[in-house]
Design a protein around this nucleic acid. Structure first.
Lengths: 255, 255
DNA sequence: TAGCAGTAGTTGTGATCACAATAACGCTCT
DNA sequence: AGAGCGTTATTGTGATCACAACTACTGCTA
C-alpha cells in the first residue's frame, strides 16, 4: 500500500506559518524521515563513526526503504553523513583539521552576518535576539546538554536573521549540522556548565555590540565564540584520541 | 534488466588518479547521470527557469527513472536546482539579491583562500597556477564562452588548492555551480572578450601577489574579481529583466 | 462567446522485486 | 588453536509498478 500513514514518525510539524498563505509544499514521508534522522544526529542518538543502514532505519521508522534511502542521500550531500567506499553511510568523525576548516568558514560567514546585524537590526530583530539571550541564560545547567546547545544555536541564528541575508543564512545552517554530532560530545564530556560560562561572555559582548550599533565589535565577539569552540575541539580530540577510533557497525538508535 | 550498461552516458571518466591506490568507490549510474546533468547546466543546455522532469531526462539518457530522480535530488540539495511547490525541479533564476549574497560569501571564503595560497603555495602549486593562467590567456576570444569560463574556473581553483584546505574548498565548489547557469548568460550576452579583459587584470594581480608572497594583495585581487562579476550580474539583470520571466516548461536538451 | 465541469494525460512519491558486491560466518586442514 | 577458504547473509543500486495530485484539454451549457 503506497503512501502509508506511518505512526512512528509523529505529525508533520505545525506548518511553521511565517507568512500565512504560502503555497506550502505538501509534506512527504521522505522529508519526515530526513528530519527525524537529522534530529537523532543532533541529539547524539548515533555515535560518530556509526554505520547507518537503509533497511534497519526503514524498519525502525516503519516505512519502506525508499524514503530512507533518499533521506540518507540528502544527508550525505549535505555532508552531515559520510559515504564509505562501499556506498554505505556513516556518521562522520571530523578530524581536527576538518573541524578547524569548518570553523574558519563559520568565522568568516557568521562574523560577516554579525556585522550586518549590528548595522541593520530593527526593533523586532533586537527583541528576538534579547529573548534568545535570556532563554540561553536561563537554561538550567544540569539540563540535557542538547537544550543548552539548542538555545546557543537559537541565539546565534537570531543574530544572523537580523542581517536579512536569507541566502547566506542557508549557507551557514549546514555548517552547524555538520558540527552537531561532534560538538555534542564536547557538551557531554567537558560539562555544559563550563561551556555555558564561556559562551555567555561572548554572547553578552555580541548583544551589547549589536545594541550599540558597533559592527566591528559584534563580528569580533562572534568570531571569538566560534574560535573558542574550535580550540575546544582541538584540545578534546588530542585528549580523547582513543574515542575517535573508526569504530564500525555500532548499532543502536531506538525510535 | 537491472544495472544496464547504457551507452548514452559515455564512459565513467578516467578515474582521476591523483594518489593511485585509493579505495575507489565503484561508480554508479546515478553518479554518471548526476555529472551529465551538472555538465549540461554549466554548458547552458538548460535555460534558467526551465522545468526538468524525471521521465523525460530518463528517456533521453537511456536509463530508468531511479538514477535520475536521485541525481535531481542531489542537485536540489546542492541548490543547483530549485524545488517548486509541486515538487518538480527547475533551473533556478537567481534574483539580484541571491546572486549578490552568494558572491558575498565567495568573496569571504575565496578571499581567505587566496590569502592562504599566498602564504603557503609551494613550487608545484605555483607552477599549476601559472599554467592555468597561461591557459586562460591563450583562450581564443571567439571560442565557445564555456571554454573561457572553464579556464577562468580552473585558474581560481588552482589558487584555492594551493591553500591546502580541502574541506573549505568543498564549500566553495557548490557556490560556483549555483552561479554557473546565470554567469554563462553573462558571457553569451556581454561578450566574452570584454569579460576576459576585465578578469585578466585581476588574474595577473592575484598571480603576482601570490608569487611575491603578499597575502593581502592576493585577497584583494580575488575579491575584486568576484565583485566585478557580482556587479556585472546586477547590471545585466536590470537591463534584461524581460529575459528573466519565470518561463515554465521550456523543453530542449539534446543529449 | 465566455465559463465551467469533466476527462485524459502527466508527474513525483512510495513500495516491491531482482541482483551484484561486500561482509560475516563456519568449516576444514595444517 | 590459527590461518585459509567456501558458503550464507546483508547491503546498496536499479527497474518496475501503483497511486494520488496536478495539468491541460475537450466539450457542454448559459
Amino acid at each position: 500500500m503506497p503512501r502509508s500513514s506511518s505512526t512512528a514518525l509523529g505529525s508533520p510539524e505545525p506548518k511553521s506559518q511565517t507568512h500565512s498563505l504560502q503555497p506550502v509544499a505538501r509534506d512527504t514521508l521522505q522529508e519526515r524521515v530526513y528530519l527525524r534522522i537529522r534530529q537523532a544526529l543532533i541529539h547524539s542518538e548515533f555515535k560518530p563513526g556509526q554505520v547507518l543502514t537503509i533497511r534497519e532505519l526503514a524498519q525502525k521508522l516503519g516505512t519502506s526503504i525508499m524514503p530512507v534511502r533518499e533521506a540518507l542521500q540528502k544527508l550525505t550531500v549535505e555532508r552531515v553523513l559520510e559515504l564509505l567506499p562501499t556506498r554505505s553511510v556513516r556518521v562522520p568523525v571530523l578530524s581536527a583539521e576538518e573541524f578547524a576548516e569548518i570553523c574558519e568558514a563559520r568565522m568568516l560567514l557568521e562574523g560577516h552576518m554579525a556585522r550586518l546585524a549590528a548595522e541593520r537590526a530593527n526593533a523586532g530583530d533586537l527583541e528576538r535576539i534579547e529573548q534568545a539571550s535570556r532563554a540561553f541564560l536561563s537554561a538550567k545547567v544540569p539540563s540535557a546538554p542538547t537544550v543548552i546547545q539548542q538555545r546557543n544555536r537559537d541565539f546565534h541564528f537570531a543574530i544572523y536573521e537580523a542581517a536579512h541575508q536569507p541566502t547566506m543564512l542557508e549557507l551557514i545552517e549546514p555548517l552547524w549540522v555538520r558540527c552537531g554530532p561532534c560538538t555534542v560530545a564536547l557538551f557531554v564530556d567537558l560539562g555544559a556548565e563550563k561551556i555555558k560560562r564561556g559562551a555567555t561572555t561572548h554572547h553578552q559582548e555580541a548583544l551589547e555590540a549589536i545594541r550599540a550599533r558597533r559592527p566591528a565589535a559584534a563580528e569580533e565577539a562572534i568570531v571569538a565564540d566560534i574560535r573558542a569552540t574550535s580550540e575546544r575541539y582541538q584540545k578534546y580530540r588530542r585528549e580523547h584520541a582513543e574515542f575517535f577510533v573508526e569504530g564500525r557497525r555500532a548499532k543502536g538508535f531506538a525510535p
